[in-house]
């Protein structure tokens, strides 16, 4: 869906108006995001592009509820993230968001299966139900034969696919991926992008990817270019 498509109230998933995030650094302020306006609807696959320090990660942090705006308005899936309490943010991260990181951030002491189950368990799902969900996801991601392995025993691609399984376990509306191919070889990177695109296409997940690479460009429904915390281009 492009910016020119009509946006209905039901399909609007992310709404940002004059969104600002300033980091005080001693006596000076560093601008992370500057008066940004953005609307994303359900089912979009958005690629955020820009150089280091352009504001991609800051925007993802704000969308993930890991950080709070210092100005403006940010509503995601009906949750006002600027005003949300900590417990609301926790529920939001459990049910609305699934995160994929460049460094995978798998817990080293948990197996593939346990890492995938973790968010469901934290959300209060019964262990056996979480296992069933994780089994399905790992099978879909081609990891069922690795489910009892520890992260240290996996390749980079396998680690990232485990991270995707973990991101999907609570069936979130939005997948946020921060440089998901940054630590992968090109073949594994392509596989991961294909998986995210597949999620977007067949499971109607809204996917937002922050990346330097062009791997995801072809699959994106929208490309947003950021510079100094502002949107400088759309495609």
């Amino acid at each position: 869906m492009s910016m020119n498509s009509p946006v209905t109230e039901q399909s609007l998933l992310i709404f940002a108006h004059q969104l600002t995030r300033i980091y005080p650094m001693g006596r000076t302020d560093v601008i992370g995001i500057n008066r940004l306006d953005l609307q994303i609807t359900t089912g979009e696959m958005v690629v955020l592009k820009g150089d280091s320090g352009s504001g991609k990660s800051t925007l993802l942090s704000l969308l993930a509820g890991l950080d709070r705006p210092t100005g403006g308005q940010l509503t995601v899936a009906g949750v006002d993230l600027a005003a949300a309490t900590e417990s609301v943010l926790t529920r939001y991260r459990r049910s609305v968001i699934g995160m994929v990181f460049q460094n995978f951030n798998l817990l080293p002491t948990l197996s593939v299966m346990e890492n995938a189950c973790l968010p469901a368990l934290l959300a209060g799902l019964a262990h056996h139900q979480a296992m069933v969900r994780a089994e399905d996801l790992l099978r879909w991601l081609g990891l069922d034969h690795r489910k009892d392995h520890l992260p240290a025993q996996l390749s980079g691609g396998e680690m990232q696919r485990t991270a995707i399984a973990r991101a999907l376990i609570n069936e979130p509306q939005i997948i946020l991926a921060d440089e998901p191919t940054g630590n992968l070889d090109s073949r594994s990177g392509e596989t991961v992008i294909e998986l995210l695109a597949e999620l977007n296409r067949s499971r109607q997940r809204t996917v937002i990817i922050a990346t330097h690479s062009n791997l995801a460009d072809a699959t994106a429904t929208r490309l947003i270019r950021l510079k100094d915390g502002e949107i400088t281009g759309l495609a």
């Binding site: 993930a64 890991l66 900590e86 417990s87 926790t90 991260r93 459990r94 049910s95 995160m99 990181f101 460094n103 951030n105 817990l107 080293p108 973790l118 968010p119 934290l122 959300a123 973990r166 991101a167 609570n170």
Partner: peptide, 16 residues
Amino acid sequence: LTQFNTLVAVGAAVRQ
């Protein structure tokens, strides 16, 4: 710290 923040990101509450 990274592990704990990852837990936050995947839905763990502060008290958890």
